[in-house]
């Protein structure tokens, strides 16, 4: 028996006891307990070699188990910098270690892609929010301006209709005044005809009176001339009155058309105002432009906060 000098005062052990110790350690390891190692079982070179061989096997298996569990746990927690150390691992241990290391490398890349996608989503949400905010503010401003313009136009149309109606009244009055003038002229005409007849009689009577009635005959002739002129003037006045009445008729027709157009315009303007404000004249469930912009902003906010989760 070759005794080796280094270390220890391990007693000689029967071969059976040495094998039993190796068996106990291997059984523990097989049961998942890697804390046991083979103690000195003899001083022979073979005994030492057998002991070192079993312990080395346990050491590398122990290291592999500790590494693999911790490396995967780290990857699951997102600590991707913690890899599986392949150094010191050989053969199948090394191949498996490299596989685990590569897997956590791929998990790291996946996590990075997911993170990038999340960042892109957040950026998109920011951009969407800012764009919608701007648009809805602009729509709200435009709605306010359109509402106030529509209200101004409606007021303007009401005023125009009022003015046109006033004009219609004035022209109607002008027409009835013309009728009165016509009656007055008719009366004048009748008086002039009567006067001409009287002048004729006066001329006949003056002729019968001879020399004494000559002066009176001149007067009667003058009166006749006057009545004729009066009659001619009346005809002229009647022609003028007819022209005025005709013009007044045209004016009434035009004013009625203008009033109808303005009333139609007023109705259209009310439609615009309702679309903008969602006013009382709006259809059931129809919101105004400003409300729609507010609803849009609310929906986008909801969407954006979901995207940010």
């Amino acid at each position: 028996m070759i005794r080796r000098g280094r270390g220890g005062d391990a007693p000689e052990q029967p071969v059976g006891e040495a094998l039993a110790q190796i068996a106990r350690v291997c059984e523990s390891a097989a049961a998942g307990d890697f804390e046991q190692r083979v103690p000195r079982i003899g001083e022979e070179a073979d005994a030492e070699r057998a002991r070192d061989a079993v312990n080395s096997l346990l050491d590398v298996t122990d290291a592999f188990i500790r590494e693999s569990g911790a490396a995967l746990a780290a990857a699951a927690e997102g600590r991707f910098h913690r890899r599986f150390l392949t150094r010191g691992m050989r053969g199948a241990y090394r191949n498996a270690a490299e596989q685990i290391s590569q897997s956590s490398g791929r998990m790291s890349e996946d996590a990075e892609r997911v993170e990038q996608a999340a960042q892109a989503r957040l950026q998109l949400a920011d951009e969407l929010e800012s764009a919608v905010l701007t648009v809805s503010e602009q729509v709200a401003t435009a709605a306010t301006e359109m509402g106030s313009s529509a209200n101004g136009l409606a007021d303007f149309a009401r005023n125009a209709v009022g003015s046109a109606e006033q004009g219609l009244t004035t022209v109607t009055q002008l027409r009835s005044s013309s009728d009165q003038i016509r009656r007055a002229v008719d009366l004048i005409n009748a008086v002039a005809a009567q006067t001409r007849l009287l002048a004729l009689n006066a001329t006949i009577e003056a002729a019968r009176a001879g020399e004494a009635g000559r002066g009176f005959s001149v007067v009667a002739s003058e009166v006749k001339t006057l009545a004729t002129e009066t009659s001619a003037s009346s005809e002229e006045i009647l022609a003028q009155v007819n022209t005025v009445q005709h013009a007044a008729g045209d004016a009434v027709r035009v004013l009625e058309e203008v009033t109808a157009s303005i009333r139609e315009m007023s109705r259209l303007v009310d439609g615009i105002a309702n679309a903008v404000d969602g006013g009382p004249g709006a259809l059931e469930g129809q919101a105004g432009l400003a409300q729609l912009a507010e609803v849009l902003r609310g929906e986008v906010n909801r969407f954006v906060s979901t995207a940010r989760q």
Binding site: E35, D59, D62, A63, R66, E67, L85, R87, G88
Partner: peptide, 10 residues
């Protein structure tokens, strides 16, 4: 915890 283990590489 029943003890501590240290594996060291080059």
């Amino acid at each position: 915890v029943v003890g501590y283990h240290s594996s060291r590489r080059k």
